[in-house]
Write a protein that binds this DNA or RNA. Sequence first.
DNA 1: ACAATAATTTAGATTAGTCTAAAATATAAT
DNA 2: ATTATATTTTAGACTAATCTAAATTATTGT
Lengths: 227, 227
Amino acid sequence: MRKRLSDTVEDYLKMIYKLSADTERVGTGQIAEALEVSPASVTDMFQRLANENPPLLDYIKHQGVKLTNEGRKIALEILRHHRLLELFLHEVLGYSWDQVHAEADRLEHVISEKFEERVAVVLGDPQRGLHGEPIPNRNLEMPDHPTSYLHDMRPEQRGVIHSVSDDDPGFLRFLKTQGLVPGAEFSVVDFSPYDNNLRLQVNGQDQEIVLGASVTAQLKVEIKNAS
Amino acid sequence: MRKRLSDTVEDYLKMIYKLSADTERVGTGQIAEALEVSPASVTDMFQRLANENPPLLDYIKHQGVKLTNEGRKIALEILRHHRLLELFLHEVLGYSWDQVHAEADRLEHVISEKFEERVAVVLGDPQRGLHGEPIPNRNLEMPDHPTSYLHDMRPEQRGVIHSVSDDDPGFLRFLKTQGLVPGAEFSVVDFSPYDNNLRLQVNGQDQEIVLGASVTAQLKVEIKNAS
DNA sequence: ACAATAATTTAGATTAGTCTAAAATATAAT
DNA sequence: ATTATATTTTAGACTAATCTAAATTATTGT
Ligand SMILES: [Mn+2]
Ligand SMILES: [Mn+2]
Ligand SMILES: [Mn+2]
Ligand SMILES: [Mn+2]
């Protein structure tokens, strides 16, 4: 039995995990920005979590933090809850894909292991969330998944939308109108170097679409090998 | 939009509502006992809730509190959440009737109005909870329900179990083995004045059973008119 | 290499919810 | 009607999580 952690602590760990995809260490300012709290609050929390027993963070002054194995386990636990819940809200309670995130963000801290397990069974042990994200398995191992963004693709390349940023309902509704859902195949037809706009042809859509960097940086893709 | 209240505040209001079934005003000590906090903490909370805008409690020093209409609405809201959730956990996720309470006690504070509504629809707008309790309707009106306890019945009387105290898993499992579930009909065959034991014949059970006051005081009954 | 700027940390304060110990008040008993 | 007991309230303190303002440390540009 692990000590009961506050929602706040769980949110910090989850966010540190997410931002660790990009950089080895995560800085005070990044977390302050992402969680919308002051940098001073973040420093305080970093210190507290690094002094926990066992430590949840590896903290070096002025250089930010790295999750310990303990801390990562907790982050993955919460992420599993979140993604199972989103799917559950959609499949069982009929939420639309832009409505699930906010509800899951609260419930993820509150459900028991039993609830998690029952939901997983009802859903048939899914490996991917409603927005395409990989779901950590029962042992909290994260399945392999692509790490490229649409943002970095160039003309001639073909790909499949893997997963999309899920926290902005308006953005999600927009994506759906454009057919940009996980599994959608597309090819890049043009690139504008100054604004980083990409022109795409999405399979099944009759019009080509042009997307700015603020959109393309939110879409993870699997890049198809040229055949 | 009502201001977001803490889980703690919601628990106080819910408990005050429950204890108000017996006495007009609820005292400091009763709540301290029920919520397992010190009397000093309760006094503090009584004062804070009475000074809210609008006030959630009507507090008179040394005489305890009464819910205001505002306070009652919140208590009923949480109670509706709790009872819908218990039923949902049982029907949809396969929890047994002794396992639902603890989970619902945490989730009740966290689900949105939308979640509540979807669950109500999935369950077919139930009027009674898994342990027989009345469920406040969408407008937070509590349906009519009996207020007698098995404890106060006497030989010759017949009755139906209406609802049972739901917070002790062991107690709930015991009740099930005795056939003492909501809807069960029975007749009182004997009463022992010194220990308040009651001997019952429960319909469908072959053995008569003897129940002490600590059991009979936990069972709400509908008393059948002699016919 | 050194000053200017940016990021981070420390210091001190605040709020909700809790506690223990002491003071005040109400209830019960003689 | 006093006294004894039980209950409630007040006073003062603690923790988690936050803030602002000031101090410190890093980074960057010249
Ligand atoms: Mn999400
Ligand atoms: Mn879990
Ligand atoms: Mn319950
Ligand atoms: Mn509600």
